[in-house]
Design a protein around this nucleic acid. Structure first.
Length: 294
DNA sequence: GGCCAGGCGCGTA
DNA sequence: TACGCGCATGGC
């Protein structure tokens, strides 16, 4: 098999932060490269100065699948310019320049986040890894590299049993994933149609799936469909908004939601990702100040 | 060994 | 509408 290489000029693209930020779960750092699977392609990535290097197995075609996945044409500075100017956002941006949102395949994103509820990111990675290895189709890889697998198709998952899924350590999420796959195969909800909908209608459609509430729906809307206004509120974001914006009084989830919808602008989802990243870094390095000078 | 993790669904008030 | 709880599993 032939390996194909390409270089993309990039600016402000923090590959490490982006691929490890809990929006995608299949990337592994191997010998300084991020190795993963995008669609039916094994691929590895590295940023060197102002270049993003990519390698994949032929045939790779025009690389558009990768450009789209990595959102290389997005003008991050223009997005950041729409963020509110306040201390929490300043600190969040200071914690990480170049954090991006990916554009992932809807089914993989939906299935992954159904498996994400009350799980740590490392555990989600484990579950998804098991799922792909057990039920996904093997893909060609360069010689000397471990075999990788496609994310299982909707049909492949729908054909399984609950115990088979539980074998991937997903516990009580198994019937949710199975039910969702079956609903799609039965044509009850069409993931491609959602692409063309307005955000509220799109969210409504996703909420029809078992195991999908507002949080998981918003993750899919943001990470797969590119609805930048979607603002997933998980425990970290709850904590972030409560601590950083309302330190003196306890706010209800309802008020908190209304605040985020008003406050963060047309690219609220990006702002959310910076807040999420900031809170996680802050917990890891509690001795550091927000400006990084210690 | 208890606590928590990128929640959801359901029962009860 | 608004809580509160159980649900599997594993890292720390």
């Amino acid at each position: 098999m032939t390996l194909s290489r390409i270089t993309f000029p990039v600016e402000d693209y923090d590959l490490d932060a982006t691929l490890a930020s809990g929006q995608a779960f299949r990337w592994k750092l191997v010998d300084g490269w991020w190795e993963g699977v995008v669609g039916e392609h094994w691929v590895r990535l590295r940023v060197d100065g102002k270049n993003l290097l990519a390698e994949a197995i032929e045939p790779v075609g025009d690389w558009r699948w990768l450009r789209d996945y990595l959102q290389l044409d997005v003008n991050l500075a223009a997005i950041v310019a729409t963020f509110p100017v306040d201390e929490p956002m300043r600190a969040s941006l200071a914690s990480c320049h170049g954090l991006r949102l990916l554009r992932q395949e809807p089914w993989e994103t939906l299935a992954s986040f159904i498996c994400s509820s009350t799980k740590q990111i490392v555990q989600i990675q484990q579950i998804i890894g098991e799922l792909c290895k057990s039920f996904g189709t093997a893909l060609p890889v360069p010689t000397g590299h471990a075999t990788v697998y496609r994310f299982p198709t909707v049909e492949q998952i729908a054909a399984l049993t609950e115990p088979q899924l539980r074998g991937c350590k997903m516990g009580f999420r198994a019937p949710y994933l199975l039910g969702t796959a079956k609903a799609i195969v039965a044509g009850e909800v069409d993931l491609e149609t959602i692409r063309k909908m307005e955000l509220p209608r799109a969210r409504e459609e996703l909420l029809k799936f078992p195991g999908v509430g507002v949080k998981i729906a918003d993750c899919v809307l943001l990470f797969a469909y590119g609805f930048d206004q979607a603002f997933p509120v998980d425990v970290w974001i709850m904590k972030a908004v409560q601590q950083l914006y309302f330190p003196k009084r306890k706010v209800s989830i309802k008020r908190l939601r209304r605040f985020t919808e008003m406050h963060f602008g047309p690219h609220a989802g990006y702002a959310q990702q910076y807040l999420f990243h900031y809170m996680r870094v802050k917990k890891r390095e509690p001795q550091m100040n927000t400006d990084g000078r210690g």
